[in-house]
Design a protein around this nucleic acid. Structure first.
Lengths: 105, 105
DNA sequence: CCATATATATCGTATATCCGATATTTGGAG
DNA sequence: CTCCAAATATCGGATATACGATATATATGG
């Protein structure tokens, strides 16, 4: 079976989804992405987590690279924006009711 | 390595998290759980997905069974309620900004 | 009792996620 | 150019998620 499954099919793919979402907020390089995840989750993803995920998203055509000195800045492609929009809808429908004011603290 | 990892450690565990959340809303048996997921995600998890997940949650002491005629009704244990509360906080911090009014439709 | 339908359970296999370790690349300092 | 540190990349191994197929249990109808 080839890899034609959309990002929003099942419970797997949450890492890719989160990366797309973060990149939609601001283009970043890998370590900045790890910084942001650490801030949110409290746990820093290791290089062995973040770079293979970025590689897959790149190969799927959802993100684009831009070399900036020592780093590689990633940003969403048009396809990535489309995919993120769909995935967000799916995510929000699936987790309706989990987000309640007061859970964030 | 033994299984002492909390539910909210990384991106894996979203299925267990969703099951705990749904059961916290209402005690259900397996097929009702599948119904609810189908309503939310649009895709019905197969028996091979749902029952092993329930078994693990049961063995972890997070849910309790109650036989009701032909079915087995699951509900959260005290430990499951505690775990869900923590996992919800983690989830909400991680995905802050994804939930915006208008994404649900 | 027997047949059926529904619910539950298990198995083999595949994919996504994840880490620790290690390797490679690259810009800047000397 | 050489050295260093940071960023990126890859690898092996582990766990969670997922499906289709199959097996089992049980309430209900005949």
């Amino acid at each position: 079976m080839v890899k034609e499954k959309p990002l929003h099919c099942d419970m797997r793919g949450m890492l890719s989804f989160l990366i797309l979402f973060l990149l939609s907020k601001s283009a970043m390089h890998g370590q900045q992405l790890a910084d942001e995840m650490e801030k949110r989750k409290g746990i820093r993803p290791s290089p062995g987590t973040i770079y293979p995920a970025l590689k897959e998203l790149k190969e799927a055509g959802l993100i684009l690279e831009e070399k900036k000195g020592k780093t590689i800045v990633y940003h969403l492609s048009k396809g990535g924006e489309r995919e993120l929009k769909l995935a967000k809808q799916q995510f929000c429908r699936t987790f309706v009711g989990v987000f309640v004011r007061g859970n964030e603290g």
